[in-house]
Design a protein around this nucleic acid. Structure first.
Lengths: 189, 189
DNA sequence: TTTCGTTGCAAGCACCTACTTGCGCCCCGC
DNA sequence: GCGGGGCGCAAGTAGGTGCTTGCAACGAAA
């Protein structure tokens, strides 16, 4: 791994831990194991480095949902588990971004944010569930999709912060989320 | 309002906007409309001021849930609306706290955090719904309570950040959250 | 072998930070 | 009227910040 990538990775790590102001060039360089001057020679300024480092963390992993629903509980559990795992991995980074939204709103591009695209795909899947008469209740699939993504988001962000609020067994909790959710859409579980 | 309270309020406001590092003593004093030296004379140090200012924001408003459920949809909608409004008011502050959790985990006392106590009260209410045979499905009321609080939390935190993910009408969305949720517990809506 | 681009090191710049000192003003109780 | 406590102002401390300069070492390409 070349010096540039080391710096980008270190910048993202330090940013997640300490925020923009706390991510000093000296600290980033130290974590990257390179000289501070090299940072400026490579990126010109702290701002340019941070912008590129944060942009790098944006690559979203899309979780597929089947075109033809077969087993909604299993399919949605897999979907939710994948998103939950991914958000939990990045929780420090996400929390820092959210905390600095007031100061740097530009780093949040609402159009393509990963949860938003996931919610869209999920909404389409829920629409298919209704078309196939698997989901029999009246519901707004957009609100429903936002709801499930919101539960996943809250779990990923809050489990380590408010420890006594979240049940011990993450996997069982996840399954229960999905079961309550699907029953709410009129899917028999 | 005396100088001390002005400083405490200004400190909380600036902290919510800029975080701990961004809340400089000069900026706080300027927002409070007092001299920076007065800040140190009153509180001794920035840390003491911030600690007291943040502690002040902790006073939680408990939202009552009826002992005898009558109209679950209305009761839970009122409950959810109150919590949503309160979280949304304080969203900047909450987001900043979450963003700085890695650096200052001590400000989060997981035992008495407002969402946790709300979730506990909600769980008890859901238990009553089941005892009265209003909620007929099998569900874990602890997980269910966490689920609804999570949806509220995600809406309060995310609506202004990921604008296209949340439907336009907050009140209608809220009602739909509650309806899907209650149906998921086996309550006929 | 020479050359040249990349890196490290030492030092330093101007600015901001939390925090201190000394002095003068002004209002409030006596 | 007057003494004292609370406040503001000017100035300054030591340390951290982003960023720059000058110079030497190294390794690969020529």
């Amino acid at each position: 791994m070349n010096v540039r990538d080391q710096l980008l990775e270190a910048a993202a790590r330090v940013y997640a831990e300490a925020g923009y102001r706390g991510a000093t060039t000296r600290r980033i360089a130290s974590v990257a194991g390179v000289n501070e001057i090299t940072l400026f020679r490579q990126f010109g300024s702290k701002d340019a480095l941070m912008r590129e480092a944060i942009e790098r963390c944006r690559q979203d992993a899309t979780v597929p949902l089947p075109q033809e629903p077969v087993d909604p509980v299993r399919e949605l559990t897999d979907f939710a588990r994948a998103h939950l795992a991914r958000m939990r991995e990045r929780r420090s980074f996400i929390r820092t971004c959210m905390g600095e939204f007031e100061e740097h709103p530009e780093i949040m591009e609402p159009e393509n944010s990963p949860p938003a695209v996931a919610a869209k795909a999920l909404g389409a899947y829920l629409g298919r569930l209704r078309e196939r008469r698997v989901a029999t209740a009246e519901f707004d699939e957009c609100v429903a999709a936002t709801m499930l993504m919101g539960v996943i988001f809250a779990d990923a962000m809050g489990r380590d912060i408010m420890r006594d609020m979240f049940p011990r067994d993450p996997e069982a909790t996840l399954l229960e989320y999905v079961r309550i959710f699907l029953r709410g859409l009129g899917v028999s579980v």
